[in-house]
């Protein structure tokens, strides 16, 4: 009996597809419900007809949500782009140092850095808040960017360090013989090789920062609050009318979804890098 036949008997093909389709329904059902709810007239939203298609397509919810969220989207964009770029660059440098310029004590420093990625941020929140206030960075995007850069360092450093570990030391030795120093090696050899590393880190950091809520709600005033805070405040109150939170949820989700759909392959790489050894 062939192996293929065995497989078939163990679990028929159609059952596989049935289960996969059921799973797909589980994952896509909420999307359907969100979209139809966002497109209904507020008065037509009833719990009992939640799954029905809208009788009239009501696109205005998006215009209203856009007005409510434009500022939040802009803040999130500025925040996520800036913090991502800075933390990626620093992470790259750190990873380069930790993988190629091993110094005494590196074995202690690295785990100490990594620990910062796992701490519950509640355990630093109160001092962080008072610190930012005392240096005048509370409330604005600057303070939030600084926060995300610092707490992003462990993961970016880790990903780059693992990435650079794959670059053979011989390549650097060859560069050294040519007289290149620390920066020369980085600029000529390491950086050009790390483009895909950057893609992974940038995707990871961008989605993390875009989606973050705790720091955002604690450290910003309204005019610089990111989209997650705006959405939570709109949806968290008396959500009698559901079209707005749903339209807002779509707006908040679109940027990371686009990145994910376009760069999904790298995303999975990023996921794997997210576990310490991958």
């Amino acid at each position: 009996m062939s192996a293929a036949l065995r497989r078939l008997r163990w679990s028929p093909r159609w059952l596989t597809y049935l289960v996969l389709l059921l799973a797909a329904f589980f994952f896509l059902g909420p999307v359907y419900l969100v979209v139809v709810t966002a497109l209904k007239e507020p008065a037509a939203i009833r719990l009992s007809t939640a799954w029905h298609l809208p009788e009239t397509w009501h696109w205005q919810s998006f215009a209203v949500a856009w007005d409510a969220f434009a500022l939040g989207l802009r803040n999130s964009l500025v925040l996520a782009v800036t913090a991502t770029v800075i933390s990626a660059l620093l992470g790259s440098l750190n990873g380069y140092v930790l993988s190629k310029w091993r110094f005494p004590g590196a074995n202690i420093v690295f785990p100490l850095m990594l620990f910062g990625m796992f701490i519950p941020y509640q355990s630093v929140l109160i001092p962080l808040f008072t610190f930012l206030r005392d240096i005048g960075l509370y409330g604005g995007l600057g303070g939030l960017i600084l926060t995300h850069v610092v707490y992003g360092l462990p993961i970016t450093t880790l990903i780059f360090r693992n990435f650079y570990a794959e670059i053979p030391d011989e390549m650097l030795e060859a560069g050294k013989i040519d007289g290149a120093g620390f920066f020369g090696l980085y600029a000529r050899i390491v950086f050009p090789l790390s483009i895909s590393g950057f893609v992974v880190v940038i995707i990871w950091q961008f989605t993390q920062i875009w989606n973050e809520f705790l720091f955002a709600v604690t450290l910003t005033r309204r005019s610089s609050a990111p989209i997650t805070v705006a959405l939570a405040q709109l949806a968290g109150g008396e959500a009698v009318r559901w079209n707005l939170p749903m339209a807002g949820a779509i707006l908040a989700a679109v940027p990371t979804l686009i990145i994910y759909i376009i760069l999904g392959r790298y995303f999975i790489k990023g996921l794997l890098a997210g576990s310490v050894k991958g």
């Binding site: 808040f129 930012l132 509370y138 409330g139 005033r221 309204r222 405040q233 968290g236 109150g237 008396e238």
Partner: peptide
């Protein structure tokens, strides 16, 4: 500036954080 949430339970957190933050 309004923060929704009955009897101001959410608003109070936001307001107090701002006041503590000197804003």
């Amino acid at each position: 500036v309004t923060v929704t949430g009955g009897a101001g339970v959410v608003a109070k957190a936001v307001l107090k954080t701002r006041m503590l933050g000197g804003d």
